[in-house]
Amino acid sequence: MRPRICFVLPSLNGGGAERAAVHVLNALDASRWNRSMYLFERRGPYLEDLDPTIALDAGRRGSRIQRWNALRKYLRAQRPDVVVSFLSYFTVLTAARAARVRSRIVFNQQTPMSAFLRDADYQWRRPWHRRAFSVVTKLGYRLADAIVTSSVGVADDLVKQFGVARERIRVVHNPVNLDAVERSSREVLDPQFAGMWIHPVVVAAGRLADAKNYPLLIDAIVRLRARVPARLFILGDGELEPELRRQIAERGLDQAVVLCGFQKNPWKFIARADVFVLTSRYEGFGNVLIEAMACGVPVVATTSAGTREIVTVGIDGLLVDRHQPEAVAAALERVLVDEPFRARLSSAARDSARRFALPAVAAAYDRVFGAVLA
């Protein structure tokens, strides 16, 4: 009998963890695994990407206790052999224990937890809430059967800041579906954007949130445009959109910076860019970088735990150690004005992306899950 494996997430909203979960679960060998997914809420743009042969169940909107209880009942009824939590780790762990099932619990950690605890996007009502969450998190890590991190940097953070034993962690980078990216990148741009697509073009993508540090990027574009007439297209939505629109207007960039909203197919934009840029305060991995590289587009990114493991400086992109507008502008300028350099980066980027091809990553996950059951 095939072992039953269930991925648990809050929803399939448009984030890197959600996309990675769908890619990996789709790619797991259905002849070896009985695959399922449970969502606290059935919503998000990646629902339609889930393989229809995967059993999908979801709870209903409600309080945290109600969501926890719905998951507990689901786990008791389905009794999966392996439960993989991409988020809401302690909720999943305690629900499984309360359900009195013998499921192996695997945490998938996508971002450095210490950075998450400092993240301005998450509203901690009182300082002790943050401290309590940290204590509970440390306990959860000790009780999990295995922990998978998206990068060595995320693993290092767990070891140094949360006392997790190194031998309990497996590093598996997030995958890129090269065939899907190639196919999607050939789609035509919507007319509303095609008319504004005047080179040189810089593209950025990601949630409009504090962690992505778009104010830094916009200030960098101000400095860049003093030397290069570049346009910036930002793909994504989020709570900071009004603030970013104000900043764009104040900097006089209304005709130079375009907020495109969430795009189900970002690759048709990225593939037409001269350079892709990511100015995050931190990244556990940086899925969008390997997707840009798969499109053959050079990348410029601020240095963080995850981006160091993706970008080979001067070969397929550039990393900016100083998270300052002039430093980002200088890196973008170098790629945009030096055409031979940009061509070399572009050629190498495609080769670099193959390191993260979906079949190899799925095989690595298969080995992790098999070891947990051994």
Rank of each mutant, 00 (worst) to 15 (best):
R186Y: 12
T53E: 11
L189T: 04
V171Y: 11
F276Y: 15
I270Q: 02
I105S: 10
N69C: 09
V84D: 15
F369H: 04
V92Y: 04
A115R: 13
S151E: 13
S185H: 05
D156F: 11
V368R: 05
C295F: 09
W128I: 11
E250H: 14
W68A: 04
R334W: 07
R142S: 07
L232T: 11
V176A: 09
A30Q: 14
Y141S: 01
Y214K: 01
C260L: 01
A180M: 07
R79P: 01
V164C: 07
I169F: 03
D254W: 15
Y38P: 01
I54G: 06
P229F: 02
A360P: 03
L336M: 01
R61Y: 09
P112C: 06
R35M: 06
R367I: 02
L345Y: 12
A21V: 13
S114K: 07
D119S: 06
Q192N: 15
W68P: 00
A146C: 02
Y38R: 08
G306F: 11
A70E: 12
R42V: 13
Y141G: 00
A330R: 15
K160E: 15
D316I: 15
G314F: 10
V176K: 02
F269T: 12
F40N: 12
G252T: 08
K73M: 03
V335R: 02
L143G: 14
G284C: 00
I221L: 12
V159C: 05
E241L: 10
T137L: 14
I290E: 05
F86K: 05
N108A: 07
D190C: 02
Q161A: 09
W33I: 13
L208S: 03
F369G: 14
A362E: 15
L244H: 14
A115W: 09
V181H: 10
V297L: 06
E326P: 08
S150I: 09
N213A: 09
V24A: 06
S347E: 10
V106L: 11
P229E: 04
L12C: 14
K212C: 01
R100S: 10
S151C: 05
A58C: 07
G16N: 03
L178A: 06
A96K: 01
P266H: 00
F116Q: 08
D316A: 01
Y282R: 06
